[in-house]
Amino acid sequence: MSSPTPDVPASESREARTRQMLGMKGADIKEASIWKIRLQLMKPITWIPLMWGVLCGAASSGEFTWSIENVLRSLLCMLMSGPLLTGYTQTINDYYDREIDAINEPYRPIPSGAIPLNQVIAQIWILLLGGIGVAAILDITAGHTDFIMTKLALGGSLVAYIYSAPPLKLKQNGWLGNYALGASYIALPWWAGHALYGHLNWTVVVVTLIYSFAGLGIAVVNDFKSVEGDRELGLQSLPVIFGVQKAALISATAIDVFQIGIAVYLVTVGQQLLASLIVLLVIPQITFQDMYFLRDPLKNDVKYQASAQPFLVIGMLVAGIAMGHAGI
């Protein structure tokens, strides 16, 4: 490993390298390894929510049992949802965002010239085909005659494409783009986990799409790091449309209100205890919103996410367990 430059403390250099590997904001460092650069394009930090969503869906199916076969199938589904298809999503997003990244995050692999565009395109196709292939394997091993996993993989991949690519490029619209992102992080992996073990029905689809409005709020948090470039290139993110403070309030409101809405729904299906637990998990999120996010969204976005999101994702699993108990 190369030593840090003289004007960069070792601790800061290590932190920058970690951020680079995870695809996080603030990764202002050069890395020579092409495989580390490829990994940076795939943003491993973003895989975790989708892998967790698979668990939530498995729980909501009410059919998951602890066996070696089911654990292996879950891990394969997480591989599909996380490294492969989320990796595809992040890579194609970086490909189409290379101009705006040159303004907001010039150290990213593509605008910095660390990886040629033809290699980026090859990576996009490998991840996409790999994800669809794993989905087909899951269908075959689960005995799905309707190939529901493959359909979900294809549908999710299409959403990822139209989110990033012209002419639709949903991310240009703050509302549509952030909802598409929220649904991709909550509803899609949830459906995959549920369909792997049970029957994906319209109730589960609708409830998780409503839950995805909380994901919209989370997606807005990610817009603050790029507000300067968005404004310069005419992208209508919510911080650009409403201003930083109002957008932060919209984000926090969506996150809190729709989680509480899911809790109310769970009360109506007889899951009062688990619904109460979800409400309790919202309280620390509100606290961290007041402590960090609403006071300075631009400075504290990462700190807020690290503090508050664990409570949100735990609440998702609680909701999945409750839905499974209710036989939804």
Rank of each mutant, 00 (worst) to 15 (best):
D7P: 09
I29F: 00
L39F: 12
G57S: 06
M51R: 03
K36T: 06
M24D: 01
G53W: 06
V71F: 14
E31N: 05
L72H: 10
V71L: 15
S81G: 08
I48T: 15
K25D: 14
I29C: 02
K43T: 04
R19M: 01
F64R: 09
E31Q: 09
G26T: 02
V54W: 00
G23E: 06
D28L: 04
R17H: 07
G82W: 04
R73G: 03
V54Q: 00
P44D: 02
M42S: 14
R17L: 08
G57W: 04
R38S: 11
L55A: 13
L22Q: 03
G23I: 03
G23L: 05
M78S: 02
M80I: 03
G26A: 06
K30Q: 13
A58C: 08
E12F: 02
R14N: 12
M78L: 11
W52A: 01
E15D: 15
E63A: 15
S13F: 15
P44C: 05
A32Y: 14
M21P: 04
F64I: 11
L55T: 12
A16C: 10
S74R: 06
W47R: 00
G62P: 04
W66R: 11
S74G: 14
A32V: 12
S61G: 09
I34K: 13
L72R: 14
W47K: 02
L50P: 01
K36C: 04
G53H: 04
A27K: 01
G53F: 08
E15V: 07
N70R: 10
G23Q: 04
L79H: 13
M42P: 08
A16V: 01
S61P: 10
Q40K: 06
W35P: 09
D7S: 14
K43W: 01
D7V: 05
A32H: 07
I37R: 15
K30C: 03
L22T: 03
I34R: 10
G26D: 07
L76D: 07
